[in-house]
């Protein structure tokens, strides 16, 4: 089942309200919805709520043999699943364009920006490395899946602890969580996505579009930054053309948003660490 297009009334009201300087849920143009992070009982399980959009990320690890041409490189894999639970428009086993875009963007933001130190995942060069797998489940779709998924993935990686290992000669011992304290992954930086949607020939620009805003938008762009103001990825798949000035303005807004979100993630992680 395809998602029904919004009614003419909704579309016209949304555009008129934007022209008037208001968004349909009462937010300001550059406001994110309320972000809530909930940690699971195990390490590496995080549920992110961005307004009514909900995403669950779970990190797991296993020991595997590395590629022969990269004997010291560990693996980092992302698995995104847009199930019918999120929205009736998603079907099992059939990838929509949206799903491909979301998973590609997360790959770009996380792996290609080298957020995780994959060399640090090596146990014995050429023999054994850790393979880290991040499963991202979309539980409820109310727009802006990319930002929510990105926050979920990086928070889960920060929260995750892998079992400790000791290497004596050729022998590798993997200690269970009871035997030794598990160790965190070494993460270089925290990339955060900020999605912009454009209306009114690109004159009106908003952050964190909701589902209805996504349906009515003329174009969108996702900027991935970290707190050090380094651009990790920039994605603009179709939509209206944009001026350079506007892209620069977007990144400037994103810098502020990224700082806020990073602070919130770190506060949530600290609060959780105290409870454990």
């Amino acid at each position: 089942m395809r998602d029904a297009d919004p009614s003419t009334n909704e579309r016209e009201f949304l555009l008129a309200a934007l022209k008037d300087g208001a968004r349909i849920d009462g937010r300001k143009f550059y406001d994110f919805r309320t972000l809530r992070l909930t940690f699971g009982a195990e390490y590496g399980a995080v549920e992110v709520q961005l307004g009514n959009t909900r995403v669950l990320a779970k990190v797991s690890c296993e020991v595997i043999r590395p590629y022969t041409d990269k004997p010291t490189e560990g693996f980092l894999m992302f698995n995104t699943e847009l199930s019918p639970m999120a929205s009736a428009a998603f079907e099992v086993g059939r990838q929509t364009d949206e799903e491909v875009l979301v998973s590609r963007l997360i790959e770009k933001a996380m792996r290609r920006s080298r957020a995780l130190d994959t060399e640090g995942l090596c146990i014995v060069a050429g023999e054994k490395v850790w393979s880290i797998r991040v499963d991202i489940h979309f539980l409820d779709h109310d727009g802006n899946l990319v930002d929510a998924a990105c926050i979920a993935a990086i928070t889960a990686l920060l929260h995750f602890r892998r079992p400790d290992v000791t290497v004596v000669g050729e022998d590798v011992t993997i200690h269970t969580l009871e035997q030794r304290n598990p160790v965190p992954l070494s993460i270089h930086h925290i990339p955060i996505c900020t999605t912009f949607a454009f209306f009114n020939n690109g004159e009106r620009m908003i952050v964190d579009p909701s589902f209805l805003e996504e349906q009515v938008k003329e174009g969108d762009m996702t900027v991935t930054l970290n707190v050090h103001k380094e651009v990790c990825a920039l994605s603009k798949a179709g939509g209206i053309p944009m001026e350079i000035d506007q892209i620069l303005q977007c990144t400037k807004i994103a810098v502020v948003k990224v700082a806020e979100i990073t602070a919130q993630i770190q506060a949530a992680l600290e609060a959780d660490a105290k409870k454990r």
Partner: peptide
């Protein structure tokens, strides 16, 4: 639920 009022701000407020 369909809501209509004199201006957009009011309608948004009522919806919220």
């Amino acid at each position: 639920v369909w809501v209509n009022s004199a201006n957009a701000q009011h309608t948004i407020l009522i919806c919220n």
